[in-house]
Design a protein around this nucleic acid. Structure first.
Lengths: 193, 193
DNA sequence: TCCCTACTAAAACGAACGCTCTATTTAGAG
DNA sequence: CTCTAAATAGAGCGTTCGTTTTAGTAGGGA
């Protein structure tokens, strides 16, 4: 079963890379560690990703981007009001962060920061991720009746505040930054009604 | 001149480490690169920092923390109104980021994220940095008459939004996230008057 | 049956890593 | 001047890195 093998092994490698780089970053994550975690061999890794570590990192960032996009979608579906939906986001982010022992932050940020200005392909993948997330927030706001330019700017600040608050929460091992961010973002959004 | 030598070389090593880790992160920065950049030898590095790379990274994070604290102080001194001062911050941050070719982001964040959950000393130094910056913002707000709890929460979100916006600006090589953050933070602060 | 492609397996490459070690130089104290 | 400790210098340690290479296995189509 060729296809199943490919899908299975390839997918396991990407997931393992994404999770490891989420926790350790790009440089600290080795190919050997990835192959062990994914239960694959080094040969398989280079078979599926001839471009080596860089190609793998790009794929991992894309995977993380999809993952977080699905998280946003899920949070947006459970609340009709945008401000309430953002509040659900911060709550769920804090929960996930705490339950992982403050290890699983944003699956993209660490790798993105390390690679900014040094590995263009990774930086590009990260930029696409942020852009996509902003679009999701923007659409949510637009559907709630906010003007286009207002929704555009709010989407920027929502994503940026979520990023900053999650980073801060992770470093200080506290849910407070995310909880405060939820309240302030709701207040900011409401101020445009 | 023992003392001058010590101060000079030691300081050069810390500054070089801080700058390199700001751009490349902890793992990607080697001791050899540091010693070259600092115009010091490996022997000198281990003479001043027997704890090796970790001790050096802690010192570099502390240095970056002081650097950004001075930046905040300077911005706060040039504007009396807190909201206007934050606006000056985002403007100056965007300027510095652009002029460095989008390379010099926050001098602490990259190293902090890489080390979170893996190198406790570095994580602790980063947490102290954020805490200190928040205190500066909080004091600025308190001096302008904001209630203690309001100032406390706003300080969190100001720092977190600045972090998130600078990260986003760096990755997308655009000043827009910081410009928007400045406007939204001013609006948020004003909403508490 | 044979073949060809997809995939796995493992050994080994040179380079770079953090760090240790032994000398050597420098400069102020007695 | 002599002594001592600080500071510099750099070769080299063992290890790990990303990558390459070579060999082998599995399985569907002819």
């Amino acid at each position: 079963m060729r296809t199943q093998h490919e899908r299975g092994t390839r997918e396991r490698i990407v997931r393992a890379t994404s999770r490891l780089m989420q926790r350790q970053g790009y440089e600290a994550t080795g190919l050997k560690q990835i192959s062990q975690e994914a239960q694959a061999t080094l040969g398989s890794v280079y078979h599926f990703f001839p471009g080596g570590k860089r190609e793998l990192a790009v794929e991992a960032v894309r995977h993380g981007a999809r993952e977080f996009a699905e998280f946003l979608r899920a949070a947006f579906d459970q609340e009709d009001d945008p401000a309430a939906a953002i509040g659900a986001c911060t709550r769920d982010l804090a929960k996930g962060l705490r339950e992982s022992g403050w290890l699983d932050g944003c699956p993209v940020t660490t790798t993105a920061l390390e690679s900014a200005g040094r590995v263009p392909e990774i930086q590009q993948a990260a930029e696409n991720a942020y852009e996509h997330w902003r679009t999701l927030v923007r659409d949510k706001l637009a559907r709630a009746g906010f003007a286009d330019d207002v929704a555009h700017d709010l989407a920027h600040s929502v994503i940026n505040m979520l990023e900053g608050a999650e980073l801060s929460a992770q470093v200080s091992q506290s849910e407070a930054p995310l909880e405060i961010a939820g309240r302030h973002l709701a207040r900011l959004i409401d101020s445009y009604r």
